[in-house]
Design a protein around this nucleic acid. Structure first.
Lengths: 225, 225
DNA sequence: TAGTGTGAATTTCTTCACAGCG
DNA sequence: CGCTGTGAAGAAATTCACACTA
């Protein structure tokens, strides 16, 4: 309600899902030396239409200058703040199978401010070893890991059958943000934030649109958009 | 328009994104020997509310029986048909780096009907080798690969900088469905269906909700939902 | 009677269009 | 003049609630 602008409450979900998109673009603009950007430019560089860009940005406050555009650095700052990216948040990957190993080796997380602090696996053949410089620990060491990485995000990269049990242990150990890659429903207490990513589901959705060639309709960002 | 039921046109996007969820659940129910299921049961097993389940299923046609529920096998059949899963669709992964290698080794795709037919990489040190039984070919062999796998889906697992160029080559080679894991905007012609999955973006969205602990609000299926 | 199918109400998201300001 | 910021219109998605029927 507060019209004060410093802290605009309740940013719509759809907008939140697009903020990282703008941020990505802004960082690249900043790298290219641009210091202002218009909603139209952000629109072409993100694939979101200009009116939507303006409305989305307006939820952060009024940081634009009429006739000019937005200050790139300022927007990066405000957006990072809203996204909670000012404090680095590390990641704990549960499951050192194919997907888990891939995710540790993948640069994408650490490059964008989410370093992998640890991996967890039940297999005693794996625990104690390092993958890509990250130690694989047994589930029993979860509480210590969480204590050493406050506010960390748990990533579930285990088979679907054990996903719920794994999530329960993560929550028990104090993790309150979870990204689940296992294709199964998991339930969490109210105070835990959960997101699901199902890679095969994406292929099935593609398959649907491929069948009828309604391209463009399917162009959506993961799941949300 | 057609009230005939055999082929309900224009299923809403939001519904399409949930069909794979129902399918996953139905397959597991079928495996457990259930032959009917109610919207309430599907609701609890997918995390979607019951009214939404019924509305979604109604887009496929009227396959339920009042007072009883839905026939599991029938629903699986109709849903698979709508999703275009009756003909197997293979996948070509562009980029044999960490993410690409992870995806080939990952069972999730082939287990759910999307076998990996080939990998493509420019690095001559990689081409010719096999990863997880899949041959890594050079980009020049793309046309043959596509010809050998009609209707295949292209997966882009390359660095962001080259994603657009890679997508262009895929399209040129005849691929019309693309799943892009590179965190960058890519543009495709109208007849090509594109979906984006940005893993770090998911973490950023989690970070947003973690910051304000508005849990539950964030519970959404990637992707889109 | 138990559970579907669906119009109608509601909420959320998108798009339009333009007043207002630098 | 150019571009933001935003009310208001419009579209899409969700939820309600209940008539209907196997």
């Amino acid at each position: 309600m507060g019209t004060n602008g410093r802290f605009h409450r309740d940013i719509p979900e759809a907008t939140v899902a697009r903020l990282p998109l703008y941020l990505r673009s802004l960082i690249s603009l900043a790298g290219a030396g641009d210091d202002t950007v218009s909603s139209a430019e952000l629109a072409t560089s993100t694939g979101v239409n200009a009116a939507k860009v303006r409305k989305d940005l307006s939820y952060l406050g009024s940081f634009g200058t009429r006739g000019v555009g937005y200050d790139v650095e300022r927007l990066i700052f405000e957006m990072s703040r809203q996204l909670g990216l000012t404090t680095e948040r590390s990641v704990v990957i549960a499951g050192a199978g194919n997907l888990g190993q891939a995710l540790v080796k993948y640069r994408g997380f650490s490059d964008r401010g989410f370093p992998v602090a640890a991996m967890i696996d039940i297999d005693p053949a794996k625990t104690g070893s390092e993958i890509s410089g990250v130690l694989v620990s047994s589930p029993s060491s979860l509480p210590e890991v969480v204590a050493a990485n406050p506010g960390c995000i748990g990533i579930v990269a285990t088979p679907a059958e054990v996903a719920q049990a794994v999530v329960d242990r993560l929550v028990e150990a104090g993790i309150t943000s979870i990204l689940n890659f296992a294709p199964s429903l998991v339930v969490v207490p109210d105070f835990v934030v959960l997101r699901q990513v199902d890679l095969a589901l994406e292929l099935q959705v593609l398959s649907f649109y491929a069948e009828r060639n309604l391209a463009g309709v399917a162009e959506a960002l993961h799941s949300i958009d």
